[in-house]
Design a protein around this nucleic acid. Sequence first.
DNA 1: CTATCTAGTTGTATGGTCGAACCATGGCGG
DNA 2: CCGCCATGGTTCGACCATACAACTAGATAG
Lengths: 142, 142
Amino acid sequence: MAGDRELQEAVARFVRAFGLHQPDQTPCGQPVPVSEAHALGELARDGALRQSELAHRLRLEKSTTSRLVTQLINRGWADRTPAPDDGRGVLVQLTPHGVQAAARLAEARAERFSAVLDRVPEGERAGVLRALTILTEAIDET
Amino acid sequence: MAGDRELQEAVARFVRAFGLHQPDQTPCGQPVPVSEAHALGELARDGALRQSELAHRLRLEKSTTSRLVTQLINRGWADRTPAPDDGRGVLVQLTPHGVQAAARLAEARAERFSAVLDRVPEGERAGVLRALTILTEAIDET
DNA sequence: CTATCTAGTTGTATGGTCGAACCATGGCGG
DNA sequence: CCGCCATGGTTCGACCATACAACTAGATAG
């Protein structure tokens, strides 16, 4: 299919430009491991989540998720409570500290993205957003 | 700025959907570490490169790049030769084996992207490509 | 010729992911 | 009511990826 090659290069460049290979800080420059930032985002947005649900959203294995949650707990950002309806499961929830951390992160992210969007020509912004969404959906379907 | 929030979520979802977490295989399912795949791509496209140039393109530290090149060599995919014009530098170049590996990788990538593009509505494809490029440029400028 | 800069290597510390083995609980058919 | 299998989590081992600092060697400016 025409365009394959360009799309490949475009994605590769995007990934590198955005600094997604640096595991120890977010692309927005915050000194928070990127996987923790993802988790923080989900938990801040939707509140308490089953660990398995978190794994599903982050597309991580349960083992990885378990460790990730432990790290959040060690930072004082989250805690585990037994799931009320299932003796096997745990509920992960942000602590007030964690909520704060998520807010700080969101702010930095907003700042970065705002700066980026500033450089995107006015008329293209909607298109960029739309394109990313379409592309993600397409990827999900394959 | 309006759209920040959506863009953040869109990028985060894209990253996860595309499987960029998994360092030990490409998003296209090939059993090749993703950093090696990036390097292979550059070397296959542009031929011999100075190691520093490779580092620049991949946005990696020179130490990381050095190690990466060593890995490629251990696989028999590349070799180092002294730079002709500078006694300090080395030239990295794919071996025939490496060229083959790069070709296999490119094929798998093309297949994957082709499948993805199939799911992108005909009229949107140009827009998606364009959007990614614009976004990458915007990121680069910040 | 010396002081400094640049290219690359190696060591150390983090961070990240998976799959397998293992445990406990839940659900189900007999 | 009791085995049997499925499900949610944890822990372990193997691997991959990155940065920064210290060090070597060649290049370069004065």
